[in-house]
Design a protein around this nucleic acid. Sequence first.
DNA 1: GAGATAAGTCATCGACCGATGACTTGGCTT
DNA 2: AAGCCAAGTCATCGGTCGATGACTTATCTC
Lengths: 208, 208
Amino acid sequence: MSTIDDLEATVAHKRDREATRARLLECARLRFARDGYDGASVRDVASDVGVDAALVFRYFGSKSNLFAEAMAGSSEPLVLPSGPVEELPGKLLQQLVFEDWAEYAGEHPLIAMLRSAGHEDMRDRVRQQVCDGYLGALEELAEGNDDAALRTELFGAWLLGIGILRTAVGTPELTKAGLDDLAPHLAAVATALFGRPVPAPAGDDSAG
Amino acid sequence: MSTIDDLEATVAHKRDREATRARLLECARLRFARDGYDGASVRDVASDVGVDAALVFRYFGSKSNLFAEAMAGSSEPLVLPSGPVEELPGKLLQQLVFEDWAEYAGEHPLIAMLRSAGHEDMRDRVRQQVCDGYLGALEELAEGNDDAALRTELFGAWLLGIGILRTAVGTPELTKAGLDDLAPHLAAVATALFGRPVPAPAGDDSAG
DNA sequence: GAGATAAGTCATCGACCGATGACTTGGCTT
DNA sequence: AAGCCAAGTCATCGGTCGATGACTTATCTC
C-alpha cells in the first residue's frame, strides 16, 4: 500500500499546486523556445501539461509573467561548461552547435529565443543572458588586449552566427560539418582574435 | 490648372491600380521585415498605404502571396558591393552593420528576415539569398584552401553574428563600436580564416 | 461522513486576425 | 451628361488569442 501511495505521490499526484506549476514552467520554456513568444499560446502550454488555460493565468497572472518566470528558471539548461578558459571556446561551440537540443526543437535555446527578440523586454532578457552568461565566461580569454570586451563580443558573434547559419538558415557546408571540421578554424580564429593560443577542441571520443 | 492636374497625376494619382499595388508591396516588405510574418498584419500594411485591407486580398489573394511577392521583389536592396574581392569583407561588413537601413526598421533586411525563419518557405528563401548572394560573392576569397566553401560560410556566419548581436540583441560593445573599431579585427579574422591577407576596410571619409 | 479550502474547469468577453462578398465611388469613354 | 467598369470600401464571418469570473471537484481535517 505504501508502494502505491509513493507511486501516486511521485508520478501522478493530481492537484499538486507546486508540481503543476513546475510542469507548466517546463512546457512553457519549450514552447516559447520553439515557437517564439507570439507563436506560443497559453492554451498550447496548458494543453501540453493537460490542464485548462485558465489555470495558467491563475498561477502566473499573465502570459508575460509566465514567460518571465519560465526564462528566469531556464538558467539550468544554459549551464556553462567548466574547465580552463582555453578550452571554453571549443566547449561552447560544441554546446551551441552540436549538442542535441531535441527538446528545444533541435535548436540551442539561445538561438530559439532570438525569435522572440522582436519584443522589447525579451530583447533585454536575451541580451542579459548573452552578456552575463556566455560573454562573461569568455571575457577572460581576451584579457590583456586593449579592447577585451569588444573582442569577446566579436567571438561570441561568431559562435552565434555559426549556430544560426546551421539551424535557422540551413547553409549546406555548416549543416553537414562536424565538430572535427570546425575545430581547426575555431582555433585559428580564436587565436587571431584573442592574440593568445587557443587549442582546437579535441574530437572527443563520445562523438561517434 | 494644368499644374494642379500634373501634381495630382504624379503625386496623388488616386485609383491607379499599379501604383497602389507597388506601394502595397513596398510597405509589405517593410512590415514583414520589421515585425516578421506573423507579427505583420494585412490590416497594418493596408493602413500604411491608406487603403482598405480588403484591397490587399483583392490584389494578392492571400497574406502568403503578398509575402511571396514582396520578398521576390526585394532582391534590389540586397545589391552586393562591387570591387576587388579583397575589399569585399569590409564592404559587406559596412553594408550589413553600418548602413542606414532606416526603411527596414534599422536592421539589414537579411537579419530582419530571420525573424520569419520559423516558416519553412521563408527559411528556404533566406538560405537561397544567403548562399547565392553573399556567400557566393565571398567564396573567391577562400580559393586555394581545401575546404573553401566551409571557410566562406564560417566567415559569413561571423558577419551575420555581428549584425545580430548589434541590432537584435543589443550587445554593448558592438552597439557602440564604429567601423574603425571593427576594421582591424575584421582583417585579422579574415586573414586567419582565408589564409591570405585581407586589408582592413578604410575608415572612409564619409563616416564622420 | 460533513464541511471547508484549494485545485482545476467552463463559459464567456473583447480584441484582433485572415478572408469573403456585397456595396459605393471615382474616372474614362461616348 | 449618361453610363459603364474598375478601384476601393463596408459589413461581416469564423477562428484564435489573452484574460476574467463563476462554477465544480478533489483532497484534507475534524
